[in-house]
């Protein structure tokens, strides 16, 4: 299934398959490098911790090269546009949730544990802004209701130890 109706064809290696090959080669190479110090065999001669990772990383590189060869032989379509900005708010919303739910320290900035009461609305409103037809008022009301629902279900219903609002009620 292609994303756009008919993406313009692209020259090697910027076609979909070419980029796919490049991505595989890059990933395989990074993993190979990351596993470089792992032994192939153990002291007693068994399978070492590096055997499978390095074999696989090598395999991924080879598969990537095969993909590149194919892409070179057959000019393919491009990948179309990458409208990252359209969903960036979702990513930001999720990260905001992660940073506030139990607090975090990023360099000099210390975020106190804010619990679901803050983190959930941040995630909902933050990601909701990604929709073209987003309406702020509606989103805020929705966030409040859904957060209350989540606190009820996860904390009280299922008994998960997820913080609710440590700054307000101590947990």
């Amino acid at each position: 299934m292609s994303d756009q109706a008919s993406p313009p064809s692209a020259r090697f290696p910027w076609s979909q398959d070419g980029l796919a090959g490049l991505a595989l080669v890059a990933f395989g190479a990074v993993m190979f490098w990351a596993g470089l110090e792992l032994p192939f065999v153990t002291k007693s001669g068994g399978v070492g911790s590096g055997l499978l990772p390095r074999l696989l990383a090598g395999l991924v590189v080879l598969l990537g090269i095969a993909q590149l060869v194919l892409a070179h032989r057959r000019p393919g379509e491009g990948t179309g546009s990458w409208p990252l900005a359209r969903f960036l708010p979702v990513f930001v919303g999720v990260v905001a949730f992660a940073l506030t739910i139990r607090g975090a320290a990023i360099g000099p900035l210390a975020i106190p544990p804010l619990g679901m009461a803050v983190a959930a609305p941040l995630a909902i409103i933050g990601s909701g802004l990604a929709a073209k037809e987003a309406r702020i008022g509606e989103l805020v009301v929705f966030a409040v209701l859904l957060t209350a629902f989540c606190v009820g279900v996860f904390r009280y219903g299922l008994g998960l130890s997820i913080p609710v609002a440590p700054w307000l009620i101590g947990f």
Binding site: A110, P112, P113, P166, W167, L168, I169, G170
Partner: peptide
Amino acid sequence: GLAAALSS
């Protein structure tokens, strides 16, 4: 609680 949150 607020005070505790503000002064860690």
